[in-house]
Design a protein around this nucleic acid. Structure first.
Lengths: 291, 291
DNA sequence: AGAAGGACCAGTGGTCCGTA
DNA sequence: AGAAGGACCAGTGGTCCGTA
């Protein structure tokens, strides 16, 4: 039960297979590539002296067990389905068995996203947007599982996709391709997909046609969401909370800022022009730097 | 706008007066006593070397302004009411003006609580339970104010009494007698008061009559809450969330554990004895150490 | 250059334990 | 002894920036 923070980085070979199946179903072109050294260069980095050393941390006995090191009595992930159960034979909390460790292939970075149309499969070491959105659905599943474990154990029960859920996905389920920065980065894109699928699809087709990169498409997703929030007095939290698939995600800071700014700008308009026009929103967007 | 963490300890003299009024209204016998040195011994302590020094922390420019250092454009506290406005003349974020500092009386610890009947005023350097419960209502007010500021500024809006609210109470409003450990310590007592006032009142009278101390009364408040949670399948979170005055408080860990334990124990009972009896709950309580 | 994600950081929830 | 609360700590939300 040695709980080393750096082990969060280790990636189990065994769990890759069902993952790969799932990812292909959503159009993923991600690949597993073997790097021969067990831990890679990551171990070397460790620059700062501020990190408290592990031994002193451990001296204080912690009574509560985390969900990740639970008794494995919760039923196993069904997203992965089809009998390829990801086990979970005592070695699921960072301590890999010897055989697994020696045969483990270290996962490369995920392939970058490209703007794809709905249904389109990305080729040539790229991932498509259907795959991206599928990751959000997977996180939802993971949250449901974490919640069910928490309830069974009488722990406090998360209502959002928290660090605990990301850790569960990565360490317990082996979904090493899910990470917090990525998921947070594209939340608003997923929100648009969920709230206004047609608008989202149109945007994807337009940006694909123009040959725009993912970053440009991502930025373009903000504006329609601000417009949607306008129907709720620019209360983007209300918009998220009203939708069951969105309410589990934190509202991105930038999106909240844009909605707030749009509200301010709109209230300054003369009463003869109360409707949100394209140009007024254009102005709003351009006043926020680095969206 | 110098933001020193230690200044959280400083206690403004000017804000004491309306506070005192309020506290007397709820039966407080707390007193302000002048200690001549501006900061008291607190400053001396500072034992550990782990604390990051303030200058290095400040080197990284923080862009977001906290609510506490806001533009003072939110309306002032009305709990304190009656014209004694707590201002707030540029010096409300930890930097006291010279005149205030020199004339500041340092607040002593609050008087300890004693078990009082409803309506009874504690004397002789004690505080009564009506006063205790009033503190929870004050925190609710503070939360409402923090929420309104947050919404106005487009910040994310807390739904619970968070650190931010405690800081607001202490630094912005000068309610130095409110602190997190105390409020968390007695949350479940307040919960009983809110959910079953009659039962709470009876308990207070019984414990006062028996001459029990506050700690004993506090422990005794757990059991009736577990019984209440039983009507909701021991889901104490559901109980808290269903009540608007409770939903802003985190469910205390111990209370959650007791409810969970009661659920487990109850499910083991034979189907011919499904009701919660006093004795079975007695057993449950006694198996948890150090409630 | 565009993008993925390890790793950091300020401030959180939680409560211990030195204090009065 | 019983109790109040400063101060600490592990783990959080958030995202930067060294990396590929």
């Amino acid at each position: 039960d040695h709980h080393n923070a750096l082990d969060a980085l280790s990636q189990e070979g065994l769990s890759e297979e069902p993952v790969q199946l799932e990812r292909e179903a959503a159009g993923s072109g991600g690949e597993v590539v073997g790097r021969r050294d067990g831990k890679g260069k990551n171990q070397q980095r460790q620059t700062s002296g501020k990190k408290k050393d592990a031994s002193s941390t451990k001296s204080k006995k912690k009574k509560k067990k985390g969900i990740e090191e639970g008794d494995d009595n919760e039923e196993e992930v069904e997203v992965w389905g089809r009998g390829a159960s990801i086990e979970s034979d005592e070695d699921d909390d960072g301590e890999e068995s010897q055989s697994e460790q020696s045969s483990a292939a270290e996962r490369q970075r995920e392939h970058p996203f490209i703007v794809t149309e709905p249904g389109e499969v990305a080729r040539a070491k790229k991932n498509g947007l259907d795959y991206l959105f599928n990751l959000y659905e997977q996180c939802h599943e993971f949250l449901l599982q974490v919640q069910s474990v928490a309830k069974e154990r009488g722990d406090k029960c998360p209502t959002k996709v928290t660090n605990l859920v990301f850790r569960y996905a990565k360490k317990k389920v082996g979904a090493s391709y899910i990470n917090k920065p990525k998921m947070r980065h594209y939340v608003h894109c997923y929100a648009l997909h969920v709230l206004a699928e047609d608008a989202s699809n149109s945007l994807r087709r337009a940006f694909k046609e123009r040959g725009e990169n993912v970053g440009a498409w991502r930025l373009a997703c903000y504006q329609p969401l601000v417009a949607i929030s306008a129907t709720q007095s620019f209360d983007i939290d209300a918009v998220f909370n009203a939708h069951p698939r969105l309410s589990i995600w934190y509202v991105p800071t930038r999106l909240r800022q844009l909605c707030h700014l749009a509200r301010s700008s709109t209230s300054q308009l003369p009463p003869t022009a109360p409707r949100i026009t394209g140009s007024s929103n254009q102005r709003v967007s351009s006043t926020v730097h680095g969206v």
